[in-house]
Nucleic acid binder design. Structure first.
Length: 399
DNA sequence: AGGTATTCACATGAAACTATTCTCTGAGTTAGG
DNA sequence: TAACTCAGAGAATAGTTTCATGTGAATACCTGT
C-alpha cells in the first residue's frame, strides 16, 4: 500500500532525531553566550530566597536575543531552590502580548490573580475590584512574589503608563507579602517614554541583552542541531549559512532555529538524507511567503477590502505607487459594489498604517507642496505571491 | 530673482460613541413546608 | 420562606466616528532691483 510507504518513510525519519528541540518553546538546558546575563538576573533575584523583596528589574534586547529564555531559566532554577529551601516564593511568567489573555490592564491583573490560583471573570467587573482581589490573594499568606511581564512595551502602548505606576505602588498596600516585577521589552526606547516616577521604580536594575553575532548563532545552532537531528544530517556549511542568514536579521536566534527546522522538514519531505544549503534558501523563502499569506488571510474584512482596492488601483493604472485619496475613492466604490459598510477616511488611513506596520505595504508620508500631504504607498508583496494573495482576497471579499 | 505667505490633502491625536459580552444585584416568582 | 429566574445597571473591549489640530513644500504673491 502506498500510504504505508509514506508512513514508513516518515517513521524511519532519516533527518530528525527530536524535532521538538528546534521548536521555539523548547527550553534547552544550556544557553550559550548568555552566561553573564543569566548570572546578573540571578544575582538580582536571589534575595527572594531570603524572603526579601528584590529590586524591580528591566530587561531589554531585540527579538531572539535570549531574554525570555534566560529569564525563564532563572525562574525555574529559583523555584527549584525555593522549594528545597522551603521558602514561600512564587515566580510567575506573563506574556503581555498574548491577545485576549493579557494585553490590557484588566487582563494582566486578572492573569496575575489566576496565576496565584484565583478565579476572575473575563469581563464585567470594575478594574479596581480586580486590584482588591489581587491584593487579597497575595496577602492570604506571607510570601514573596515575582512577576515576569514579558513584552510589556506592547501592553503599555495600548494603555496609559499609570498602570505600571499602580503596579509599582501595590507594594505599599501589602503588609505580609512582597511583590516585585521583571519587565522584558524588545523596544530599547521603551523606558524613555515612561513617566519618570514609573521609570525609576520599575527599573531599579537594568540588563541589556545584545544581539548574537553570527558566530554565536552558529554555536547555538550546533548545540541544538546535535540533539535535534540524526548524526551527519547537517553539514558545517549549512550551519554557517543558516547563522549568516539569521545574523542579517539583527541576530535573531529564534529565526535561525526556525529556519533550520523548516529546512529539515523540506529535506525530509524530499526524502533526502542530508540538509543542503538549497533547503535553507527554500526555507527562507517559505517563511517569508507564509508570513505574508497568513497575515493577509487572517486580517478582518475591512482590511482586506482596503488591500483589494490598493491592488486593483495599482494594476488598473499600471502604477507602482498610489496615494491615500485615490485609494479611498476606489475603496468606497468597492464597498458599494459589495454591499459593505463604508468606513471613514480617518479609519482607512489607520488601516493603511497598520498594513505598513505588518510589512505588507510600504507607506511613506510625503508632501506634494501645494497639492497637499499624503502617504505614498507601494505594495510590498513579492510578485510570485500576488496571484495567491488575489485569490485569498477574491474568496473572502469578492474582488 | 529672491523672499514670504498660502494652501492643499491629507496625517495625526484625542475623545466619544457603539455593540457585544459578561458580572452583579435585587425584585419578582415559584415550590415546598 | 428559601431557592430560583430574569431583567436591568454597570464594566471592559474592539472597532469606529467625530472633532480638532498639525504639517512640508510647491505655488502664488510681493518686493525691490
Amino acid at each position: 500500500m502506498k500510504l504505508d510507504m509514506i508512513f514508513d518513510a516518515v517513521a524511519q525519519n532519516p533527518i530528525f532525531e527530536n524535532k521538538f528541540i528546534l521548536q521555539t518553546n523548547h527550553t534547552p538546558e544550556v544557553i550559550p553566550h548568555r552566561e553573564a546575563q543569566i548570572e546578573q538576573v540571578a544575582s538580582i533575584l536571589a534575595p527572594a530566597l531570603r524572603g526579601d523583596r528584590t529590586s524591580n528589574l528591566f530587561v531589554y534586547g531585540k527579538t531572539g536575543s535570549g531574554k525570555t529564555l534566560s529569564v525563564q531559566y532563572v525562574q525555574h532554577e529559583l523555584l527549584k531552590r525555593a522549594q528545597s529551601m522551603q521558602v514561600p516564593l512564587r515566580v510567575e511568567y506573563i506574556n503581555c502580548k498574548l491577545k485576549k489573555v493579557a494585553d490590557t490592564e484588566y487582563r494582566i491583573l486578572a492573569e496575575m490573580v489566576k496565576k496565584l490560583g484565583g478565579e476572575v471573570p473575563a469581563t464585567g467587573l470594575p478594574t479596581d475590584q480586580i486590584y482588591n482581589r489581587f491584593i487579597d490573594f497575595v496577602e492570604k499568606e506571607k510570601k514573596t512574589v515575582i512577576f515576569i511581564l514579558d513584552e510589556i512595551d506592547q501592553a503599555v502602548k495600548k494603555m496609559s503608563d499609570n498602570f505600571l505606576y499602580n503596579l509599582t505602588r501595590l507594594n505599599s498596600e501589602l503588609v505580609k507579602s512582597q511583590i516585585s516585577f521583571v519587565g522584558i521589552s524588545n523596544d530599547l526606547t521603551f523606558i524613555d517614554q515612561l513617566d519618570v516616577r514609573v521609570r525609576s521604580s520599575l527599573s531599579e536594575e537594568e540588563i541589556i541583552f545584545p544581539p548574537y553575532n553570527a558566530l554565536q548563532i552558529q554555536d547555538i545552532l550546533k548545540e541544538r542541531a546535535g540533539k535535534a537531528f540524526k548524526p551527519q544530517v547537517v553539514g558545517e556549511g549549512v550551519i554557517a549559512k543558516c547563522a549568516a542568514l539569521a545574523a542579517r536579521e539583527h541576530g535573531d536566534a529564534r529565526r535561525a532555529l526556525d529556519l533550520l527546522r523548516i529546512a529539515g522538514e523540506l529535506a525530509e519531505r524530499e526524502g533526502k538524507k542530508h540538509i543542503e544549503e538549497e533547503h535553507l534558501d527554500k526555507a527562507n523563502e517559505k517563511m517569508e511567503n507564509e508570513k505574508i499569506l497568513d497575515v493577509i488571510s487572517t486580517e478582518p474584512k475591512q482590511f482586506q477590502i482596503v488591500l483589494s482596492s490598493i491592488i486593483q488601483l495599482l494594476e488598473s493604472k499600471k502604477l507602482q505607487k498610489v496615494y491615500t485619496g485615490d485609494i479611498y475613492n476606489i475603496y468606497q466604490e468597492f464597498c458599494q459594489a459589495t454591499r459593505n459598510e463604508i468606513l471613514t477616511q480617518r479609519r482607512v488611513s489607520d488601516i493603511i498604517a497598520e498594513f505598513d506596520m505588518l510589512g505588507v505595504l510600504n507607506a511613506t508620508v510625503i508632501s506634494h507642496g501645494r497639492h497637499g500631504r499624503t502617504r505614498e504607498i507601494r505594495l510590498n508583496i513579492p510578485k510570485h505571491l500576488l496571484g495567491k494573495v488575489k485569490e485569498i482576497l477574491r474568496d473572502s471579499v469578492g474582488m
